[in-house]
Simulated assay, not measured.
Amino acid sequence: MTENPWPVVELRQYTLHPGTRDVLIELFDRELVETQEAAGMRIIAQFRDQNDPERFVWLRAFHGMPSRGTALKAFYIDGAAWREHAPAVRATMVDTTNALLLQPATATSNFTLPTERPGAAATELPHSRVLATVYYPEGPLTEFTEFFENRLRPLLVETGATPIAYFQTDPTPNTFAALPVREEIVFVWLALFEDSAALEAHFNALSNSRTWTEEVQPELSKLQSRREDQLRLAPTARSLLR
């Protein structure tokens, strides 16, 4: 298997002013995808959170932690695109500090992504949906990863939510202090669904599974310091992950 050249991933959740999400997405998809990638990043996905109309969620990746600092400086400090569009972008935002710095949980758990995204003029929204789940392990990440792969992942596959990638906290110090990240231990997995109906079918199948309700869910609760976060996400017209 070819090694994924983007092993450092950010999961970013932004809280926006009411009614501004579409404004931000239109600007982001038009002006801030190729310009970030030209600075040395990979824009993996942009989403509307289906449960929160004031939340914009996105994922980007880097070749490594040293190159992350270089790429972010090139875009945010030296780049013309950010200088031009930052005022309009910031006008939509309430809070941008909900960001997680991640690395693949195993050697084979990173994304396998298409090589091309829809063009800059794309407006058609995909029917697909993404479920992103953030767990908060209380013990060692190695033990939680083992639990996920041996106990939880088979049940997810059985109920129609095959994980397409899973990650854990990258413990490396933040290489770009101007963009803070949450300093807590997490485990994140993502699944891709054909549409909203397929996502709901997964939740129904899981809730009807005695293996889940009687065995796996109680075990999962004991392994976490607090309840997991679940994000139901709709890709934008230019999201690479779709």
Rank of each mutant, 00 (worst) to 15 (best):
227 R>F: 12
148 F>I: 10
36 Q>V: 04
48 R>M: 06
130 V>E: 04
129 R>N: 04
197 A>D: 12
121 A>D: 15
139 G>N: 12
21 R>I: 01
149 E>N: 08
187 F>I: 03
176 F>C: 13
195 D>A: 11
34 E>F: 06
37 E>Y: 06
87 P>I: 03
114 P>G: 00
147 F>T: 09
141 L>W: 03
80 A>R: 02
44 I>C: 01
118 P>R: 02
5 P>W: 11
109 S>I: 15
57 V>M: 10
228 E>K: 08
97 T>M: 12
181 V>Y: 03
61 A>E: 12
98 N>A: 02
53 P>R: 14
165 A>P: 00
87 P>T: 05
142 T>Y: 05
35 T>N: 03
6 W>L: 09
68 R>Y: 11
27 L>V: 00
214 E>R: 12
131 L>T: 02
129 R>H: 07
113 L>W: 14
238 R>Y: 06
25 I>V: 08
40 G>Q: 11
203 F>R: 12
64 G>C: 11
68 R>H: 12
14 Y>T: 00
159 T>C: 14
59 L>V: 13
128 S>V: 02
104 P>F: 14
4 N>G: 03
203 F>S: 00
184 E>K: 00
120 A>S: 14
139 G>M: 11
81 A>G: 12
95 D>F: 10
196 S>R: 14
169 T>E: 06
52 D>Y: 08
17 H>Y: 02
173 P>D: 13
165 A>V: 07
147 F>V: 09
39 A>Y: 10
206 L>M: 09
222 K>R: 13
58 W>H: 02
36 Q>W: 10
27 L>H: 05
